[in-house]
């Protein structure tokens, strides 16, 4: 395995040594513009993010709620593209060689970019994994198998509707970590009761040794602490994107406090994951 492929493993190993859950932060690449997006990306590790889910904007984000949809459209309106997203990763990687960046999005932009070309460029830019929402195991030949062959982990979603019969199928070819998503399956919807998450994570652990990240619905330090008590990582997207959106002017342009709006929330959440097992 090459260096980029192991950055995620190293991250989870370090977290384990520290005996705390990690904090994964989702932001959409190019939201609200390329320059601000890069500034946010660079500020995330310092604010307490252990890894970054970097959204590749798509016009039709079928599995996302209104906040992340809006963020995707803002980015596209400001000129985002897959090539520019990869470029942001490259620029981030010039300064930060440890924080894993997982590219997250939908298949069509990758398919149009070209699977092999995408893998080459993403790996050379320093990406550490892929989450491609609309590629279930049934379509593994498209991207998952080629990615894993080249050492780029393919992180898969598991949901409450993924039953014990289906889980092994979902776990085949999955690497990096497992991303457990809440009941509704759409980003930005209601908080999930902690007991349900505990039971679900427990069920997942009987099927896999991979680290388990839990996402969808975490908004506060307290919630991060609660989820973090049962998961290997908390993944926060909608709340971060909302914080960013709240800092924009009426034309969706970055305000003076846009980066700070994001890092303030991330710092709070970072305290949460540090309290999780206290």
């Amino acid at each position: 395995m090459d260096y980029t492929a192991s950055r995620l493993d190293k991250c989870f190993a370090a977290l384990k040594a520290e005996n705390r859950p990690g904090l994964g932060i989702f932001v959409t690449a190019g939201d609200p513009d390329q320059e601000t997006s890069l500034a946010i990306l660079k500020a995330l590790p310092g604010a307490g993010a252990d890894m970054i889910e970097f959204g590749m904007p798509f016009s039709d984000p079928m599995a996302d709620g209104p906040s992340i949809q809006a963020s995707s459209l803002r980015a596209l309106k400001a000129g985002a593209s897959l090539a520019k997203t990869i470029d942001l990763v490259r620029k981030f990687r010039e300064e930060d060689q440890t924080t894993p960046v997982v590219l997250m999005g939908y298949y069509n932009p990758i398919y149009i970019y070209g699977v092999e070309r995408f893998l080459t460029d993403a790996i050379s830019a320093g990406a550490d994994g892929l989450i491609v929402v609309d590629l279930p195991p049934e379509e593994d030949d498209e991207l998952c198998v080629p990615a894993v062959k080249r050492g780029l982990p393919f992180v898969r979603l598991a949901t409450p509707t993924t039953d014990d019969a289906r889980l092994p199928k979902v776990l085949t070819n999955t690497s990096g970590f497992i991303y457990y998503v809440s009941i509704t399956g759409i980003t930005g919807t209601a908080e999930v009761p902690i007991d349900m998450v505990r039971a679900a994570v427990g069920r997942l652990r009987t099927h896999t040794d991979l680290p388990i990240g839990v996402g969808f619905g975490i908004k506060t330090r307290e919630h991060a602490a609660a989820i973090g008590s049962v998961a290997d990582a908390c993944i926060v997207g909608t709340a971060v994107v909302n914080a960013l959106a709240g800092s924009l002017d009426s034309n969706d342009k970055a305000g003076p406090d846009t980066v700070k709006a994001v890092t303030d929330l991330v710092s709070e959440l970072a305290k949460g994951v540090r309290e999780a097992r206290g």
Partner: peptide, 20 residues
């Protein structure tokens, strides 16, 4: 059996939708 007509068709949906 996987819903493909040649290279077309298929099931490109999120895992949340697969069981449905």
């Amino acid at each position: 059996e996987n819903g493909h007509f040649g290279i077309f068709g298929g099931r490109y949906v999120a895992e949340t939708l697969m069981p449905l």
